[in-house]
Design a protein around this nucleic acid. Structure first.
Lengths: 320, 320
DNA sequence: CTGTTAGCGCTTTCAC
DNA sequence: GTGAAAGCGCTAACAG
């Protein structure tokens, strides 16, 4: 028991004893077993994080942010990637729960019915991030994808563009894309613009390779387009590269805007106008909220459902 | 005991009993506790993975590969990022070991002396990936960064370039960069080229933003340069963007090559010549090796140190 | 095919 | 400031 106290930094161990313990630890190469500790104390120190994919700098930055803020209290992250599939998410939730995480962080607000049920039955706090579902399971840290695109349309209109198209947002799986597309359509209507024109993309993950073909198709279908908003920066960069190739000047022939403020958007030529979402910030905030949610609240009084909205901003650069 | 067997898929449970158990599980919302199981069976099902950063698609693809191949045996990954710091790596190793992972995967072959000691004392198999240290701790899955750059120089020479520069490789921390730079210098000498010219970059992570300034500096210092190899694709893309801006045609004024075959390199304009390293493959191979290393080998006969070399290839595109 | 016993390595709780 | 007792939830080993 004294060893346990010494190793866990409790101060009710005399300096002399602590010294003796530490030198024995050193000599024996003793390493504390947290699994056993978890079993006994009923605290695993794990927080589960589910993201659609590692290969998206937005999500990996978010994870890095979460990881950083949790590390301060010695919590470990258990990451899983769903591959944008709700089925896989459901399955992962079950697996994760077997590790007895103290909290669960999910990307997005759309889950299978069974997953929702499982999560509600569980006593661990759940935080959904990135989206803004109307009825979150518990806590929420995110932003409205629709509102952000609306802002972007408004900004383009303010700059004098009228014929504005949108690339992205198919009807399968990626609810973030669909939400963004809805924002676009709503804005076109609200602002009284002549016409909405959407070039849909296939299933996620959306990437650079999708941009080129999409912009070519747009120019065939609606040659009068003056500006286009892409569902993600990667797609926008692909589009711009194709414009170089086709010798369509950006922005004079066609203005291009993206979403996500990926690093490349600051260094591309032309630099890319985009919606900045500050992923590290979302991660840090989520981590901090999780610490509050899992902290020692008086048994009855668990943290009331929180709804944090992370501010976004439109960043105008050379491409518009 | 019968419940345990039923839930772990052992087949020595009658169909009737299993049925009864499953319906009780469903009704009670019972979830197996793997922590307790781990304590009892001395198998945690964890594999630790340490990478320098999540925000590098090479590393995240590798992790995804590892994760996939381990999932087939129900192993969970415990990821930590070192931020390119050996100190942090040492500390992370200690933390990870407290979770009793069945194996440990490290990125790179350079560690603090204490970390090496700790790892050698541990009985868990260690796999170092990405680099080719002369004296690996245990197993190795990687490629020689130096050899790959040598190949690239040779290819450029074969295409008729003679005055070839290199961007990257400072002396602090990122041993992969340094290794690549050495490969460059060796190749220049071996192939009898007129001169080696290196534009060093600062500490990692190296990214798109470093490319522009570096290429400008190169053109000031050595205007006769015909081609340049960048330490990473991101840096090369940054350089190409700056060339657009400066109206230096790529490749006729200056050919540019990268390293890593990031997705953007296939869709940039011009598309980028690069060294392809197949990160998913390295991940899958590493995962499989780990399964063999942790598998039930006859007690005495643990797996002999393996040294897997993942083949690389030079991919020539428009930029050279 | 099913069940009993013991114990994994720690922490909680209580006693001194 | 230190220690004894008990038990966290599971599985290994053995018995029937």
């Amino acid at each position: 028991m004294t060893v346990s106290r010494a190793l866990n930094g409790s101060n009710s161990v005399s300096a002399a004893t602590r010294e003796k313990i530490m030198s024995a630890v050193e000599e024996l190469g003793y390493v504390l077993d947290l699994s056993a500790g978890a079993l006994s104390s009923q605290k695993t120190g794990f927080i589960s994080v589910l993201i659609p994919s590692f290969n998206n700098s937005n999500f990996s930055e978010t994870v890095q942010g979460i990881s950083e803020s949790l590390a301060s209290e010695g919590k470990q992250i258990l990451v899983g990637y769903t591959g944008y599939s709700q089925q896989r998410e459901e399955q992962l939730i079950d697996t994760m729960l077997q590790r007895r995480p103290e909290g669960m962080i999910l990307t997005g607000g759309e889950h299978t019915a069974r997953a929702c049920q499982t999560l509600k039955k569980t006593s661990v706090p759940v935080i959904e991030i990135w989206d803004m579902p109307a009825q979150p399971i518990h806590h929420l840290v995110g932003f409205s994808n629709a509102a952000m695109i609306e802002d972007m349309v408004a900004r383009l209109v303010f700059r004098g563009y009228r014929r504005i198209a949108f690339i992205g947002g198919d009807e399968s799986g990626d609810f973030r894309s669909i939400d963004r597309r809805r924002g676009y359509e709503r804005a076109i209507e609200t602002l009284g613009l002549p016409k909405a024109h959407v070039v849909p993309l296939g299933a996620p993950p959306i990437s650079i390779r999708h941009g080129g073909p999409a912009i070519v198709r747009l120019m065939q279908e609606w040659p009068e387009a003056e500006a286009v908003i892409c569902v993600s920066d990667l797609c926008a960069i692909g589009a711009i590269m194709e414009c170089h190739r086709q010798k369509w000047d950006v922005p004079s022939r066609l203005a291009v805007a993206g979403f996500g403020d990926f690093e490349i958007s600051r260094y591309s030529f032309p630099t890319l106008t985009t919606v900045s979402v500050n992923c590290t910030e979302i991660g840090l905030q989520t981590g901090n909220l999780m610490l509050r949610a899992t902290g020692k609240t008086t048994t009855m009084n668990s943290l009331l459902p929180q709804r944090l909205v992370i501010p976004h901003s439109i960043i105008e650069r050379e491409s518009t």
